[in-house]
Design a protein around this nucleic acid. Structure first.
Length: 109
DNA sequence: GAATTGACGTTCT
DNA sequence: AAGAACGCCAATT
């Protein structure tokens, strides 16, 4: 582990805050954590493989399952989302803006 | 160290 | 609205 992995945990922590049945975007997380680039979130999540991080709940700005190719199986990401109640069609989340979740909403109580 | 790649997003055409 | 180009930062080669 390297000291730069510090921001990994920030992404991991926040990703775990995403409630089941909802999804978030790289840009929202990157902006919330002031990473400076949404790519950092994607890279961090790639390192989250093997940990208990629901990375499948994070998609790109258009709601496309851009990261599905990085999972153990390409269809795993979509299956995970559908199992949690998030409909997916053509690798894109249905009613994405409806399921959209913002980091600032995570702890209302 | 330079060049290329990548789970992205914005701007220009 | 759709496509191409640029910007962003880290990791890899």
């Amino acid at each position: 582990m390297k000291p730069k992995d510090n921001y990994y945990e920030l992404v991991f922590e926040l990703t775990r805050r995403i409630p089941s049945g909802r999804v978030s975007t790289y840009g929202a997380i990157a902006d919330y954590l002031s990473l400076g680039s949404a790519r950092m979130v994607g890279w961090a999540l790639n390192n989250s493989m093997g940990q208990d991080i629901p990375a499948h709940r994070v998609v790109n700005r258009k709601g496309e399952l851009s990261g599905r190719n990085s999972f153990a199986h390409p269809d795993l990401m979509q299956q995970r989302l559908e199992k949690e109640g998030v409909k997916v069609e053509d690798n894109k989340i249905v009613d994405f803006k409806t399921h959209f979740w913002h980091p600032e909403e995570y702890d209302e109580g």
